[in-house]
Amino acid sequence: MKRVVIAMNNPLVEEFAQRWATLGGLCYFAEAGTDPGAAFRQAVGDLLGEANGPGSALYWSGPDWDGKAWAEWTRPLDSVQFVAWDGTPVMREVAAGADLGITGCSWAVAATGSVALYHTPLTGLLPSVLPPAHLVLVNHKDIVATVADGLGRVRGNLPPLMKIITGPSMTADIEGTLVVGVHGPGRVAALIY
């Protein structure tokens, strides 16, 4: 896979992964020479639990993950129903019923373990928030050092809605007890490629 490059041995990648893990996120790496499909299937399996399903996953993936390879990577997961986000209103119900949302991201931040998503018709925000689990695909080249660096990338390119995700949805509203998965996903994973 020529698009997959060395993800490790890069201080930004390592810092991001470490921060992301501290927040309770799972981390997977698709390194050069390995099959990214294997890391992908591992992540999906871990997020869905119980030996890869059955379950449903709503996804969009960005230009890095072309359609053909996607079909190859997902084929072995035959108990999981994959639905592609198409930006139509019916996607609301699909997202609400999905067990897993899979998205790309515009950039990620090493210092905070954050990922940023921009709304466009073909890159919806709902898959990242409605399902109980979220898998975000992070191109290692999109990992920047600071939040300010990331926000700097938005200039001149401001979408009507954008979000920066830093860990799972959580609350401490009942007797100060920390609980994950309030309105957004309680399980989050990053696949760095």
Binding site: H119, S169, G184
Partner: peptide, 22 residues
């Protein structure tokens, strides 16, 4: 005491008529 909260949402406009979200 977190470096960033779980969700930072930035709204800069409506997304329009028949969008799935916004």
């Amino acid at each position: 005491g977190q470096r960033l909260s779980s969700y930072t949402t930035i709204v800069s406009g409506p997304t329009g008529g028949d969008a799935a979200e916004g």
